[in-house]
């Protein structure tokens, strides 16, 4: 029927547009998953599936960023590269498994608070990154493992604001070289998201048609976004993301 066809076309357009913007946003400042999650929920996917599917859509962006920064990876104090990867893997799997086990009704209640947490990370993360005064030795291996594990767990569960949270944690762990920290952020994001996607797929919570559609949109957006970075002030974009995050938090509270 015509009405169904128009509806489907509208849905495809919304998802492509949101994914394009999300890919661009992630290339400049992060926060893309706010858009993918919201668009997928808006077209009628249940929260858990929307969250997992949005993460799948943004995976190529994480992987390509990790690849681009592969020569600039530094590890925080007391942590070897293999330990870092292991911690990300474990956290990603655990977070993703937790998502699969969360009933949709419960997740709908949790979403706004996760959005708020991610928004707060966006608002204050950069300040933490700039002002961290911890010495070069950081807080030591245990603190590194525990904090990265927690962030990886969060990343496997929700993903929103993961990048900025990782940068803030790495700054608190004493990483002063922003390029090295960026390299780790990209590596950890790619590893934990990659493994989380495998768990989501195994758990049957990915809407593959929507995921692939959005992957195409996000990859195109990421390409354009990466080229535009030089002309855009990431701080401005981040402020916009904070506003979007707050608006979405309110919208999602309204849905409970």
């Amino acid at each position: 029927m015509l009405i169904d066809f128009v509806w489907t076309l509208g849905e495809v357009f919304v998802l492509l547009a949101a994914a394009f913007a999300a890919g661009g946003l992630n290339a400049v400042a992060g926060g893309g998953s706010f858009l993918t999650l919201s668009a997928l929920v808006a077209v009628g996917l249940p929260g858990v599936v929307a969250n997992a599917t949005g993460t799948v859509a943004l995976l190529p962006g994480y992987v390509s960023a990790a690849y681009a920064f592969r020569d600039r990876v530094d590890t925080p104090a007391g942590l070897s590269m293999s330990a870092l990867v292991l911690v990300s893997l474990f956290g990603g799997v655990a977070g993703a498994a937790l998502l699969i086990w969360t009933p949709t009704a419960t997740f709908d209640v949790v979403i706004p608070w996760l959005l708020l947490l991610a928004t707060v990370a966006f608002a204050f993360g950069p300040r933490i990154v700039r002002n961290s005064r911890i010495g070069a030795n950081g807080l030591g291996a245990t603190a590194s493992v525990v904090s990265l594990l927690l962030v990886s767990l969060y990343g496997g569960y929700f993903n929103g604001g993961l990048g900025i949270m990782l940068l803030a944690v790495l700054a608190l762990l004493g990483m002063t070289d922003i390029h090295g920290a960026n390299g780790i952020k990209n590596l950890v994001s790619a590893v934990l998201t990659g493994v989380a996607v495998i768990v989501y797929a195994w758990g049957g919570v990915v809407a593959w048609f929507e995921a692939i559609l959005m992957m195409v949109g996000a990859t195109a957006g990421g390409y354009i976004g990466a080229r535009a970075t030089r002309r855009i002030d990431p701080a401005r974009v981040r402020q916009a993301v904070v506003v979007v995050g707050l608006v979405l938090t309110v919208v999602f509270i309204g849905r409970i």
């Binding site: 009405i3 169904d4 849905e11 077209v43 009628g44 996917l45 249940p46 809407a207 593959w208 048609f209």
Partner: peptide
Amino acid sequence: ARKYPGQLSGGQ
């Protein structure tokens, strides 16, 4: 078949 109920109209 692959869609979720929320993606469908009431009649569907």
